[in-house]
């Protein structure tokens, strides 16, 4: 209601708009959208109110009542029980390293393919495209076997290596199409200045393409953070688990009651929400990056 009040003066200027404002259909549509939005976020709201509800209040009020007082013990208990700080650190260090290395590898590949236009580049691009499409199931057993042979099984290093390559396959594909359009004048100027290929890469190409690199970094970080299948297979010991694996394997645990389960859900949602808020602008730009040619 405050919204219409605020907008009223502007709309009264033209009779056509005033007429539209009176159209009851507008509010039917808005109400329908709000109802749909409520359905979409209701599961998260229910998790949030039950995460801060004591088991006693839950028993008397059920899942839909608002907690009469805030109760943090469920969250604290769960945090301590799974050593959540450690899982957060594992997830963070893995995702961050993969994002940095993945962007670096994408830059090197795309420099050779997009700007250097090396021979057979179409085939390299087809390879990276297919690599993107592969289901991880077709790679998982040999990777599991090889990492055991190499003594890297149940170690974050194996996860970092694997995801760096997988994410860089996407990054190479995207970044090559960006570098193909790279302004030649800048490269020629660097040539004239006598800069070598590596210098040109670091002091011309990378700074100019920084916005795209930022999008890639964000993607790689969040994707790696949310990865479930390979970390589930590779990170078997408690000390090495990432957040999704720790939460995933606790599902169905008999010791988890209703409020503790929602507490675990809430502390799993919070980091994701935080990234969403931090990266929102880069993300909405980046999600569409794949679609624009």
């Amino acid at each position: 209601m405050t919204l219409t009040a605020n907008r009223a003066p502007a709309e009264q200027r033209t009779p056509a708009k005033a007429e539209k404002r009176a159209n009851p259909l507008r509010f039917v549509i808005l109400a329908a959208l709000l109802a749909l939005l409520l359905i979409v976020i209701a599961p998260l709201l229910i998790i949030a109110i039950n995460a801060v509800k004591s088991p006693a209040d839950y028993a008397s009020g059920g899942p839909l009542s608002l907690p009469p007082r805030l109760y943090w013990d469920g969250i604290v208990d769960f945090w301590n029980r799974v050593d959540f700080g450690m899982k957060l650190w594992n997830s963070f260090i893995t995702s961050f390293t993969v994002a940095v290395l993945g962007v670096l590898l994408s830059i090197l590949n795309a420099y050779a393919l997009g700007i250097g236009k090396v021979k057979g580049r179409v085939w390299f691009l087809v390879f990276f495209l297919v690599a993107n499409l592969l289901p991880q199931e077709v790679l998982v057993y040999p990777l599991y076997f090889l990492s055991k042979e190499a003594g890297l099984y149940d170690s974050l290093i194996s996860i970092v290596i694997i995801f760096t390559v997988i994410q860089a396959a996407f990054g190479t594909y995207l970044l090559t199409s960006v570098y193909q359009e790279f302004p030649t004048e800048l490269l020629d100027a660097a040539d004239v200045d006598g800069a070598g290929k590596l210098r040109t890469l670091w002091s011309v190409v990378v700074p100019v393409s920084r916005p795209t690199l930022g999008v890639l970094f964000t993607f790689f970080f969040i994707w790696t953070w949310n990865e479930f299948f390979l970390p589930l297979v590779f990170l078997v010991s408690n000390d090495n688990q990432t957040v999704p694996v720790a939460l995933g394997v606790l599902q169905g645990d008999r010791l988890m009651d209703a409020t503790m389960t929602s507490a675990s859900g809430l502390i799993g949602i919070l980091p994701a929400m935080l990234f969403f808020l931090i990266f929102q602008r880069t993300l909405t730009r980046g999600i569409t990056a794949g679609a624009i040619k």
Binding site: P244, G265, G268
Partner: peptide, 18 residues
């Protein structure tokens, strides 16, 4: 509407399983 997309799949499992 985009919010469910940013939530890790394990958490989606917890939320809906619950």
């Amino acid at each position: 509407f985009y919010l469910p997309q940013v939530i890790p799949v394990a958490v989606t499992g917890i939320v809906w399983g619950w």
